[in-house]
Write a protein that binds this DNA or RNA. Structure first.
Lengths: 351, 351
DNA sequence: CTGAAAGCGCTAACAT
DNA sequence: ATGTTAGCGCTTTCAG
């Protein structure tokens, strides 16, 4: 049987354009990129032919001869998480404006995949790599991972949303500590002192930092920390539900709960309602990330926002500048902001 | 000031490997791809050197000389929507297994962007393009868009999750009609006859199809359709809230509501609760898509699932087969499945 | 202002 | 089994 190739219209190249215009390929290239002046007459003739064929230069060939591909690789932990999808889309939009494209892949919590993706992006010759979540969230940097990234940094700038010790990467991180301060100030102002912290793993740097600040805030306020008010878990609704249930079953239950993210908070809402308690009358609930989940729950969640659009812009600006060899700060902070909705309220009376 | 380029370690190529191994570049290429047998001794020597430098062949050069890039472009309407993110990740995983990478971009409802993205993917020489949502969801195909895609199809297979008249694309669509049948059967079985349909735009094919089936089911059951029970809107929570509110304010309100997707349903939940009604005791609520939103609401939603993993697999298999010039069916259907949760229940008594 | 020529890194006949 | 050679499509000196 003969092998049939259906989709095989002739690929038109810069040479075809050149021939039809009666000029050399170089000239076509010049008008394509505006890299040098071409006589107006010729220029127009060439442009007409380009349009006629709707010619688009082969990006592979261009990337091969150039040094840049105008592609930025993004490795996200999981775009199904609204935090990452919001940030990713923000990056995509910012990149578009800067004349770059983004290439996304999800590490999905698997170390192996994350490393493989780094390799693929290098092979693809992206001009910079942005890593959002995953290994760069680890409180203790994985040594072999750091080494891998170090190798990459020699050729391609790497920007992370967390930290990576021992590797010259650019960091653009949320000021988690500040975020926790804001949240606790809010709760203190409402009269809460019995405050629980649910969800999240201590091996994740951002969670650990929040925990530190949680302690510090209590201490400053002269409130003794109760170990049973801090229940670790993961970052999903199920975990939020379980952690919250535990806290609510305590003899002396808290009057306010801080969930590690909106997902966990949504689980917390369920647990609180099942315990026959009202939000915020009986218990206040606040969380981090301000994803659209915060508007889906009933009541809507008071949550910490990061201005995703701005965050994405900074990430891309950093990536682009670094890719173009400009000098960029190695460490930048994103300032969080409190968005007050319905889930937090004044402490009415003791429990 | 001197321009400084930091990230510029020497790029090592197949020739460097060849030289150090004392062989020709072809031989290195052969061991790299296993495209022909190489004497074991040499092979091992070469592999050692490759590992030593952690050499990864330049994908651009490879794509340029080969005819394939092993990249599949995916244009999604918006990955921030859990439906698309679930499907995208499913595709990514399936592609990975097939030795392909996926390249994502979001059209975000903007016609211009969607077209531009098609161009970019062509320039990038992806082996196939999968389009999820966007213009391919239109009930009436945009002519100029179809023409554009037609041009692309001549070179690169296009797979759509909707339809595109007048363009030889492969379709992998959800059997929406069947989905609506299942949902209504479920409601009928629970005793509901006053059924509303909220959210969605009729200009979107899938919504229109659902509406058709909604009517047909009522007719078959001998129930007269009430125009006021069908309230169009969009696909977000806000719209679900508004559409549902309208329906609940009717003199004779429905006993069951079908939301166009989980997002709209989450808004519906809010509206229903604000009306002081219980779900499902006073009113049943069902929806389409079975995203994680269905598990976040209280109560959890009865929703139509599509088996995202399977759906993604079919999309990628189709893309890969088409890219490799194999014969693939032009039209495939995804069978929906009902997932019953807490939001739907027996009709207790008349309103 | 423009063309010729070399090269980006890899693959694929074609010889040997 | 392996080396040689000729591209893939574009950019970029270098001449003129």
């Amino acid at each position: 049987m003969e092998k049939e190739r259906l989709n095989t219209a002739k690929t038109i190249t810069i040479y075809d354009i050149a021939e039809e215009a009666g000029v050399s390929a170089s000239t076509v290239s010049r008008v394509l990129n505006g890299s040098a002046s071409v006589r107006k007459e010729k220029k127009e003739r060439i442009q007409k032919i380009i349009e006629k064929y709707n010619f688009k230069p082969n990006a592979l060939a261009k990337g091969l001869s150039d040094t840049a591909t105008k592609n930025i690789g993004i490795i996200a932990a999981d775009v199904r998480n609204p935090y990452y999808s919001a940030l990713f889309v923000a990056c995509e939009l910012a990149a578009e404006k800067a004349g770059y494209s983004v290439v996304l892949s999800n590490s999905l919590g698997e170390n192996e995949r994350e490393r493989a993706q780094l390799d693929i992006m290098m092979q693809q010759r992206v001009d910079a790599i942005i890593q959002m979540g995953g290994r760069v969230d680890d409180l203790i940097t994985d040594d072999s991972y750091a080494e891998k990234v170090r190798g990459i940094c020699e050729k391609t700038p790497v920007i992370v949303t967390g930290k990576l010790d021992k590797a010259p990467v650019h960091s653009v991180v949320i000021d988690e500590s500040n975020a926790m301060d804001i949240l606790m100030e809010h709760l203190f102002a409402l009269g809460h002192e019995k405050i629980a912290l649910v969800g999240g793993e201590m091996k994740v740097a951002s969670t650990y930092n929040k925990y530190q600040k949680y302690q510090e805030n209590l201490r400053k306020k002269g409130i003794k920390e109760r170990g049973e008010y801090v229940v670790n878990g993961t970052y999903d609704p199920e975990s939020g539900y379980e952690c919250t249930s535990k806290v609510l079953d305590l003899e002396e239950r808290p009057t306010a709960i801080i969930a590690i993210n909106d997902f966990a908070a949504s689980g917390a809402v369920r647990a609180i309602k099942e315990h026959g308690l009202r939000i915020p009358e009986d218990i206040s609930l606040v969380s981090f990330d301000n994803t659209y989940i915060a508007e889906l729950t009933i009541p809507k969640l008071t949550s910490i926002d990061y201005d995703y659009e701005g965050y994405g812009r900074v990430l891309i600006e950093t990536a682009v500048s670094a890719a173009e060899g400009k000098n960029v700060e190695m460490m930048q902070m994103i300032t969080p902001k409190l968005v007050i909705r319905e889930s937090s309220g004044k402490l009415e009376n003791g429990v």
